[in-house]
Write a protein that binds this DNA or RNA. Structure first.
Length: 295
RNA sequence: GGAGGGGUAGCGAAGUGGCUAAACGCGGCUGACUGUAAAUCAGCUCCCAACGGGUUCGGCAGUUCGAAUCUGCCCCCCUCCA
C-alpha cells in the first residue's frame, strides 16, 4: 500500500508549518485537504500558506479555483487520489494537510460518489416531514443518522434514491470502511483555552493584515456573498458590514465565535470518525512519523 | 436629604402566591455527519453518589398549608429633584 502522511487538527493548531517541516524532512509534497484554500483570492481569511511557505515545500490543491466556482468532496477525492499516485511514483511522500474532516476521510477510505452534479433542492413542494416519510418506507436505514430538521441530508438521501434506485445506506453497506492507503494520521492539538486565545489573536491579525480589503476586492470582482466560497468563516460574517448595518467590530466578534465553534466541530469529527494519533509536541510527532516511514 | 426605577442561573431577560429548578435569547459544552462540510443538524447547560435527592431568584426576618412572586427592615445599583 502507498504511504500517505496525513496531518489534521483544528484550525490554528499549526498544521501548515508542521506540514512543511515534514515535507522537508521526508522528501514530500503537500496536498491541501481544505475546502476553502482552493479558492484564489481568499488568502487572508482562509489562513492559506504564504508565498514564502509555499517556496519551502510544493503545495497542491491550493488556488485552483475561481471564487465563483463550486467545489465538493468528490472533486477533492479524485484530485487527491491522483496526486497520491503521482507523488508515490515519483518517489515522494504525499502529505495531506488539512482540517476538512469529511474530505480527508473520503480520500482515505473507499467512499464512493457519483459523477454527475448535485441538484440544489428540487423538492420545493415537499416538507421535511413528507420527505422523511418517503424515506421511512424506501430507505429507513438512512434515517438512523438524519434528523427531520436536517433538510440538506433529507434531500440528498431522496435524490440518491430517485436517481440511482438504491438508498444511501445501501451504498454505504457496500463499502469496506477500511483505509485504502498505508496512512499515518497525525493530529495536532493543544489546550482548549490556549487554542481559543490563538484563534482570536489570529482573527485580529487577519483584520490588521487587510481582510476587509480582501473581501472588498472579491466583491469588486463580481464574487457575491451567495457564492459557495463566501460561506467560509471570515468572509460570510462581513455581509452585514458591506450592506451597511454592522460595524467591523461586530463582524469580527462573529468570526471569533464561529471559528471557536468550527474548531470544536473539527475535534468532534477527528475524535470520532477516524483513528488519530494526537500530539501536542511536534518533535514527538516527528519521531512517530520516522518510525512509520521505516517500517 | 427627597422622589421614582431596579437587583432572577456565566451574561441578557421573562415570571408577580401553587402547574417553576424557574420561559426565551446569548455564551459554553457534547454529539451526528458518505457531494454546499469553514456547511447542515441534534442534545445538554444550578449542584450531586442523580428515572432520585440537595440548594436557589440581593440579605435577614415575617405572612401563608404553600413565596422568585405578599409584608418589614437592611445592603447595593440607576434616573430625577435638592
Amino acid at each position: 500500500m502507498k504511504k500517505v502522511l496525513v496531518i489534521v487538527g483544528p484550525t490554528a493548531s499549526g498544521k501548515t508549518s508542521f506540514g512543511i517541516e515534514c515535507a522537508k524532512a521526508f522528501n514530500g509534497e503537500i496536498i491541501s485537504g481544505d475546502s476553502i484554500q482552493v479558492y484564489r483570492g481568499l488568502d487572508i481569511g482562509s489562513a492559506k500558506a504564504t508565498a514564502e511557505e509555499r517556496e519551502m515545500a510544493r503545495h497542491h490543491l491550493i488556488d485552483i479555483l475561481d471564487p465563483t466556482e463550486n467545489y465538493s468532496v468528490k472533486e477533492f477525492q479524485d484530485m487527491g487520489r491522483e496526486l497520491i499516485d503521482k507523488l508515490s511514483e515519483e518517489g515522494k511522500l504525499p502529505i495531506v494537510v488539512g482540517g476538512t474532516g469529511l474530505y480527508i476521510k473520503a480520500l482515505l477510505y473507499d467512499y464512493t460518489f457519483f459523477d454527475e452534479e448535485e441538484e440544489d433542492d428540487p423538492y420545493d413542494e415537499l416538507s421535511n416531514e413528507e420527505i422523511y416519510k418517503i424515506l421511512e418506507e424506501e430507505d429507513p436505514e438512512a434515517l438512523e443518522n438524519i434528523h427531520v430538521n436536517n433538510r440538506k441530508r433529507l434531500v440528498r438521501a431522496l435524490n440518491i434514491l430517485r436517481k440511482h434506485h438504491e438508498g444511501i445506506s445501501e451504498i454505504k453497506d457496500k463499502q469496506k470502511h477500511e483505509m485504502l492507503y498505508d496512512a499515518k494520521v497525525i493530529g495536532l492539538t493543544l489546550d482548549r483555552e490556549e487554542l481559543y486565545r490563538r484563534l482570536e489573536d489570529r482573527v485580529e491579525k487577519m483584520v490588521a493584515d487587510g481582510l476587509v480589503d480582501e473581501i472588498d476586492n472579491l466583491l469588486g470582482n463580481g464574487v457575491s456573498f451567495d457564492a459557495q466560497s463566501m460561506q467560509a468563516i471570515g468572509y460570510k460574517e462581513f455581509r452585514g458590514y458591506f450592506s451597511g448595518n454592522r460595524t467591523v467590530a461586530d463582524c469580527v466578534e462573529d468570526i471569533k465565535k464561529n471559528t471557536r465553534r468550527f474548531a470544536k466541530r473539527q475535534y468532534t469529527w477527528f475524535n470520532n470518525q477516524m483513528p488519530i494519533s494526537w500530539h501536542t509536541d511536534t518533535d514527538e510527532a516527528l519521531r512517530e512519523i520516522k518510525e512509520w516511514i521505516n517500517t
